Structure formats: C-alpha cells, structure tokens
Simulated scan of single mutants.
Amino acid sequence: MIYDTSIPTIRKKAINRIKHLLDKNAKIEVLEKKSNRTYSQNNYLHLILSYYAIEYGETMEYVKQIIFKQWVNEDLFKTEFVNQKTGEVREAWKSTSKLNTKEMSIATERFRNYSVKTLGLYIPEPKDLTHLEEIENYIEEHKIYL
C-alpha cells in the first residue's frame, strides 16, 4: 500500500503499519514513491511534438523517437541491454512513460529550446493556455500532414 505521509491521518496509518510489521519481525521494504508524469504533461508533449512535426515536415512518431529522444534528450532516454543469448550489449530507448514529472519537464524544456534554435519555432510553456489552444486548432487543421 502507498501512504501519502503529508496527510496526518495517513501518516499515522503508515506508522502503525510499520510498527505492526516490526512486531511480527517481518521482512519489509520501505520505498519513496516519486510522482509520475501528470495527464497534462502527456497532453502537452503530444501537442508540442505534433506542432513541431507539422512545421518540420515529418511524422509525429519520427519527431518523438529521433529528435525528441535521441537528439535532444539522449541522456534521459538512452539505455542499454544485454542480449541473453549472445551477450552483446545493445542500446535501447526508454518510453516516455518511464520518466517522472521532473524529468519530463526537463525534456520538454530542452525540446522547446531546440525548436527555437533549429526551426525558429516558438513553443509556448505549458501554462500559456491561449497559445496552446491556438496550436491545438492549427494541428487540427493540418493533421493530414502527420
């Protein structure tokens, strides 16, 4: 069970649960649960990648996999795995769903900067709802190009 220790009643329940497990001499694991991305981050990411893709003349999937992950945010997405049969070490690219909220904020901010530098394309911040709605309408009008 996950306990939000910022809420006094839940905090007390967590303490009681740990005490109970200690009294039983149980093996326990205590982990800090970090926030995952929010729904709005998912929407924002999809929006900015689509907008860039239309302006760049590529598919949204290409922009996401190649530009966003490999070129702009390699340090956040690049991983390695070992082929169990051959022992060969190969690279792999994490899913955006594996990033936490802070990492996703870093990744989107980098992408915003990259967009201005490479295309001269300004991508508004997540809180700039007016411009984001304009982009949403623009994407709707041009989605045949995605």
Rank of each mutant, 00 (worst) to 15 (best):
E58T: 14
L21S: 08
H20I: 08
E141M: 11
V89G: 02
E61W: 14
N137M: 10
S115A: 07
E125M: 10
E74A: 05
Q41P: 09
T101C: 00
E61C: 01
A26D: 12
A14L: 08
K12I: 07
P124K: 04
T38P: 07
E88W: 05
Y3G: 05
M1R: 15
F111H: 08
T59D: 09
F77I: 03
T9P: 00
T130H: 02
Y51F: 12
N73M: 01
L129Y: 13
E58V: 11
L146F: 06
V116G: 00
P124C: 06
E140Q: 14
E29C: 09
T86G: 06
E55C: 11
E80H: 12
N36T: 12
K102I: 11
N137E: 15
K85N: 06
R112W: 05
T96H: 01
L121S: 07
N100M: 04
S6V: 02
K33A: 04
V63T: 11
N16P: 01
P126F: 03
Y51C: 02
K34I: 12
I7W: 14
N137F: 03
R90S: 10
I10D: 04
I144P: 00
K98H: 09
E91Y: 02
V63M: 06
K34P: 12
Q65I: 01
T86Y: 14
S50T: 10
E134Q: 10
I66V: 10
E32P: 13
T5Y: 10
S35Y: 11
I28G: 09
Y145D: 09
S50Y: 03
Y56K: 10
N43F: 10
Y122N: 08
K69N: 05
I2H: 14
Q65E: 15
Y114D: 03
E134G: 08
V82L: 05
S50M: 11
